[in-house]
């Protein structure tokens, strides 16, 4: 999902480059946040250049034209000031369908700022965190992003959830899975499940209050209060030693409000719980805890070093 999210953000920035209201400082900060951002933007420049190169040769492709709706509703209006970054993501949720997929495969996507409930035919209920994707092919589920699963116990159930290189199976339980930016975590709220992977010698069984967290280098077992599993469902985000850049990214994603961090402070670590709320309050609280300034900028809030 991360690559998709980056591409959506990149096209939001790309289409606004000729706009007088373009937030160049915000664009700079976005580029600095992750080298993949520049690559995605370069990719769009290449596409743009190709479109110009072929020009009229492409006319035959435009077969599907009808007057576009002016769907610039209040939702979009709120986004319009963001440099379009998140706006594009929002818009794409509606239109992106996988290309050439078998008909029995169902795909569910959630928009930035919106979680989504999905009820599967076998009684499983899934809460998709904002900006996530769940693919369902019979009992095989694949997750990009973050989700909470409530799977009724049923003997002989074959349900398996794939997240990155990990597979969660033997489930009859409630649990959360996050597959984000190269790291995968599984947290069990209730019941038990087993986690397998090429990276593990054998499957690990996890019970309530236990979890596993893997990044590219390490895999470790974790513990948490079952009540804290998937706390985003109750409007709370938990962080443990996370860089501020990641914290503001999550706040933006969950609240739908653009919160950014000045590169001078984006590496500062944060541990704690933040109420997502409407994003602005979250940003202000975060600023207070970390002794930063929360400055309103075009369409959102930016956290900056505190001025004397």
């Amino acid at each position: 999902m991360t690559e998709d999210r980056i591409l959506d953000e990149a096209s939001g920035w790309f289409v606004r480059q000729q706009d007088d209201a373009m937030d160049w400082e915000g664009f700079t900060a976005w580029l600095e946040a992750d080298p993949r951002h520049r690559q995605a933007y370069d990719g769009l420049c290449a596409l743009d250049s190709d479109l110009d190169f072929h020009g009229k040769d492409l006319e035959a492709g435009f077969s599907n034209i009808s007057p576009p709706a002016n769907d610039d509703g209040p939702r979009w209006g709120r986004w319009a000031g963001l440099g379009g970054a998140v706006a594009a993501a929002l818009a794409l949720v509606v239109v992106m369908q996988p290309v050439e997929r078998g008909s029995q495969i169902q795909e569910y996507r959630s928009a930035v700022g919106h979680s989504r409930e999905v009820a599967l035919a076998d009684g499983t209920r899934v809460a998709l965190a904002p900006d996530s994707r769940l693919t369902v092919s019979g009992p095989q589920l694949a997750l990009e992003g973050t989700a909470y699963f409530d799977v009724p116990h049923k003997p002989g159930r074959e349900l398996a959830v794939r997240a990155g290189s990990f597979t969660i199976s033997d489930v009859g339980t409630r649990f959360a899975v996050a597959n984000e930016a190269g790291s995968v975590s599984v947290d069990v709220e209730d019941g038990r499940l087993s986690v397998s992977s090429d990276r593990l010698d054998r499957a690990i069984v996890l019970t309530a209050g236990h979890g596993i967290k893997a990044d590219e280098q390490t895999i470790r077992l974790t513990q948490m209060r079952p009540a804290d599993v998937a706390s985003w469902r109750n409007g709370k985000l938990q962080f443990e030693n996370a860089p501020l850049s990641l914290v503001v990214r999550d706040i933006s994603r969950y609240s739908g409000r653009s919160v950014t961090a000045d590169p001078a402070v984006s590496g500062q670590p944060f541990s704690g719980v933040i109420a997502i709320d409407n994003g602005d309050t979250a940003a202000r609280n975060l600023a207070q805890i970390m002794a930063l300034d929360a400055r309103p900028v075009d369409g959102g809030v930016r956290l900056e070093p505190r001025r004397r």
Binding site: D8, S11, G12, F14, V15, R16, D19, L44, L47, D48, P68, N70, D71, D72, W76, G77, A80, G84, A87, A88, A91, L92, V95
Partner: peptide
């Protein structure tokens, strides 16, 4: 901004 949105989707 609706134009920008359509363009962002397209790109």
């Amino acid at each position: 901004s609706a134009v920008e949105k359509h363009m962002a989707v397209a790109m």
